[in-house]
């Protein structure tokens, strides 16, 4: 059974893009529109990997990761941060929140897949 990836991004473009790349590589893809929606989808779909944007309305990426790491979810769940912000401070903050790794936008599909594979079970 192929792994399921949950993508959390407020931009429909990015969601479609991620879905296309990931499903092309054989992953099942579940999408969410913001952190709060991500939490809902996390409960429903129990993904193996999560990819989240940082800048989102309602619940941003940091808050989303903190919530997931706060308990009640698979604690070994890898969470990758997808963001155009490549600066160290953002990465550090994501890591502090509990992010597993990051992918810099614009992403190269191959790099995306290898990043997901790196943490997928």
């Amino acid at each position: 059974m192929s792994a399921t990836v949950l993508t959390v991004d407020d931009s429909k473009t990015m969601r479609q893009m991620l879905s296309m790349c990931l499903s092309g590589a054989g992953f099942n893809v579940v999408t969410a529109e913001d952190g709060a929606d991500g939490i809902e989808k996390l409960k429903e779909s129990e993904p193996d990997v999560v990819i989240t944007d940082i800048n989102m309305p309602i619940m941003d990426g940091f808050e989303f990761i903190e919530t997931v790491r706060g308990g009640g979810f698979n604690a070994r769940l890898p969470i990758l941060v997808l963001t155009t912000e490549s600066d160290a401070a953002k990465k550090a903050r994501a890591r502090d929140a509990g992010a597993t790794g990051w992918i810099v936008k614009p992403f190269d599909p191959e790099k995306l897949i290898s990043a997901v594979n790196r943490v997928a079970p």
């Binding site: 709060a36 939490i39 309602i58 903190e66 919530t67 997931v68 706060g70 009640g72 070994r76």
Partner: peptide
Amino acid sequence: DDLSSGEALAGKPEAAPSPKAAETKEKPKT
């Protein structure tokens, strides 16, 4: 395994916001 689940760590589950709490937080009206 247990460490990474966070539950084995004293104080950790209480200190962290539970997903329930995050959920009931008022969402901006969309």
